[in-house]
Design a protein around this nucleic acid. Structure first.
Lengths: 110, 110
DNA sequence: TGCATATATGAATATATGTAGATATTAACA
DNA sequence: TGTTAATATCTACATATATTCATATATGCA
C-alpha cells in the first residue's frame, strides 16, 4: 500500500522531469491555453510538444478539452504550481550554497 | 538563463522520480542515517541502493560524510520534504477525483 | 601485515525515454 | 464533397536509466 503511494509519487515526479514539460506548465499557469499557443511559446516540433502533453495528460497533471478545431489544456490541480515554486526555491538555495562554497574556497587560496 | 533554471528543476524532479529514492528520503526524514541502516529499511541490493544514493548526491539533495567505516547521509535542504508532502496530497487528490468519477459513472449505469 | 566490514564503482544488459518525420484523425468551411 | 488547419499517433532511431554481478577502496582490528 505504502509502496504504491511511493510509485505514484515517483510517476508524477517523472512527468515533471523534463524542461519542456515544465515550460508547458509555466505557460498554463496563466490559465487554460490551446495547443496552437503552447507550441510557439515552448518551442520545438509540433509532434514533440504533443508527445509531452500526452505524458502530462497520462499522469493527470493536465486535462484537455476539444473546442472546435482546437484542443485546450489546463492544469488539473493547482497544487502542481506550489510544487514547481518550492522546486525553484530549492534550486536557488542550492545555487547560493555552491556560490558560498566557491567564494570561501577561492578566499582561502589567496 | 530561464532555460537553465527549467533544466535544473527538471534534473531535481528526475532525481526524485524513483520509488526507492523516495523511500531513502523518507528514511532520512527521521534524521541522518548510515547506509547500513538505509539498505534494510528500503530493501534491495547493496550496490543498487548505493547507485541511487549517488544519484541523490549528484543532484545535491543529500550529502554524505564518512564516520569511521560507515558513511552517513543527510538531506541537504529540508524543503525537499515539503515537496514530497505536497506531492502526497497531489496524488491523494487525484485518487479521490478518480474515485468520484468512478462512483458517478457506476451510479448512472444503475 | 592480513583480514573483515562498509561502501562505491564499473561493466553488461534490459528497458524506458526523447526526438523527428510521416501519417492519421477530426472539425470547419468553401 | 473536397480542402485546409489543428492535433494526435506511429515508427525508427539515439540516448538515458535501472538492475545485477563482480570488483575496488577504505577503515578498523587481530
Amino acid at each position: 500500500m505504502q509502496e504504491e503511494i511511493q510509485e505514484m509519487r515517483a510517476a508524477v515526479f517523472n512527468a515533471l522531469a523534463h524542461p519542456l514539460r515544465i515550460k508547458i506548465l509555466e505557460k498554463l499557469r496563466e490559465g487554460p491555453c490551446c495547443v496552437c499557443n503552447i507550441i510557439p511559446c515552448v518551442g520545438g516540433e509540433q509532434s514533440n510538444v504533443s508527445h509531452h502533453l500526452a505524458i502530462l495528460r497520462k499522469s493527470n497533471i493536465v486535462r484537455s478539452e476539444k473546442r472546435g478545431i482546437e484542443v485546450w489544456y489546463e492544469v488539473t490541480d493547482p497544487t502542481i504550481f506550489d510544487i514547481l515554486d518550492l522546486m525553484s526555491s530549492c534550486v536557488l538555495t542550492n545555487l547560493k550554497r555552491s556560490k558560498n562554497i566557491l567564494e570561501s574556497t577561492t578566499r582561502s587560496l589567496q
